[in-house]
Design a binder for these strands. Structure first.
Lengths: 248, 248
DNA sequence: TAGTGGTCTAGACCACTCC
DNA sequence: GAGTGGTCTAGACCACTAA
């Protein structure tokens, strides 16, 4: 554990338990540095993470002010693994593979995965459930190397993400997402147990490894009355942008 | 301009124009520090922003590798100001105020704005257009102090965000967003020129100032065939999370 | 004007990658 | 084992806030 992480974690906890109420100014960096027996620079790095999380104010020249209860950001995997998220919500996740097939990559696969058209692509359609209720459909396309690892998992494997993490060569490092809305097709409607035409939240994503190589892309559809997507942004960190022609 | 920003900007540009192609290793921090005449620590801070943007790799002990073309993140205001975004896209933004009224805050206003039920709230419904085509509806609720500033703007003011930034007491510092999908109501359909029931992307947001005080909240609806929302995340920065019961 | 945070320098030490 | 990046220390200097 880093010093900076340790300090950030300690102050986060103290804000949560009310030792530094909202509106109160934190001690100066110098005071905190003496308390934690580190230099002021180290304290500043720790406080910067809290500023980026949006729980303390970052005005220059003034003491840091507590803005709100800190919510440490979800780890990256938490937005890849539906199962992990569901368990944290104290819901029971389920997953049913509805179809699985090696196909010749079409132009969309070629563009999204950076492979040639016709290359081997593993296409899997999964229905995800919460407490037995169907809530989302994943239509995922895997690059050949990843598909071979996915293929060896059992169909009722609760978390593909966790299972793939065991695989040394496959590291999901970042992803790009586009959100839109779409009407449930007849197939969607049957799987999600809604009427055809029901509005669904459409989530297209491309997952990349540390070197920027696309590992998978997916078009997921959510029952929008049950599950949505939350995002935070700030002057310090703004990952959001509008796009025209979202596809979906 | 900071040293760190200057260095990050220079390297970003050099990657974009192909001086450091994808897959090539960047010079060491020591070499870069001599080139820019700063200390290695300063170079590292500059490179960290590129790592967070996802354009270079951040493996420890190895030289930084170019992953892809850098896309500097949008400034925070860019996701508040529809007009600024549209102009950057070389589209012509338009805005029409469809209704504007001071109302007594209902429970939703009380919760989202942190005011008492019955407090004065300015409620404005705007129709936004791109090149004359209607693309989104904003239903915004302003806290009283902000509403008084908004009220003084002319109805055809192209960018409320820009106009409000002139106001010294009102600083938008961060926001929370929830995305879902919803069916166009009769009113929505008439304004957006679509059929009732058409799936729309629903975007609920709460905008806060630096001290965490809510300034406005809004429920926006987008024509999902024209406009969507893109988000990037990585192991370094992950602002995304799923939520149950998105409202919408 | 005093205090504070933001930036940058200079350098020590360790963990890790690569040859 | 050489080279490299990540962490942390120590301190100078400046910009800004708050009284």
């Amino acid at each position: 554990m880093n010093q900076t992480e340790r300090i950030a974690e300690t102050i986060r906890a103290e804000i949560s338990e009310g030792r530094w109420p909202v509106g109160m100014k934190l001690p100066s960096e110098k005071a905190l540095s003496e308390r934690f027996r580190v230099t002021p620079g180290t304290v500043r790095i720790a406080l910067r993470t809290l500023v980026e999380e949006g729980s303390i104010d970052g005005t220059r020249g003034a003491r840091k002010t507590v803005i709100g209860t800190p919510a440490p950001p979800e780890p990256f995997d938490q937005f890849r693994s539906f199962a992990q998220w569901a368990i944290q919500q104290q819901r029971v996740p389920g997953g049913i593979v509805r179809s699985k097939a090696w196909v010749a990559g079409d132009p969309a696969d070629a563009e999204n995965l950076g492979v040639e058209a016709g290359a081997n692509v593993l296409r899997i359609v999964r229905l995800r459930t919460l407490d037995g209720e169907p809530v989302m459909i994943e239509r995922t396309h895997y690059r050949e190397a990843v598909g071979r690892a996915v293929e060896q998992l059992s169909d009722d494997c609760p978390s593909v993400t966790v299972a793939l993490a065991e695989n040394p060569g496959i590291i999901f490092a970042r992803a790009q997402h586009v959100f839109a809305a779409t009407a449930a097709s007849a197939e969607d409607a049957a799987m999600l147990d809604v009427s055809p035409g029901t509005p669904l939240l459409s989530h297209r994503r491309i997952s990349l490894d540390r070197r920027g190589v696309p590992l998978e892309w997916s078009e997921d559809r959510y029952r929008a009355d049950v599950i949505g997507v939350a995002v935070g942004n700030s002057w310090a960190v703004n990952p959001l942008r509008w796009v025209t022609d979202p596809g979906g």
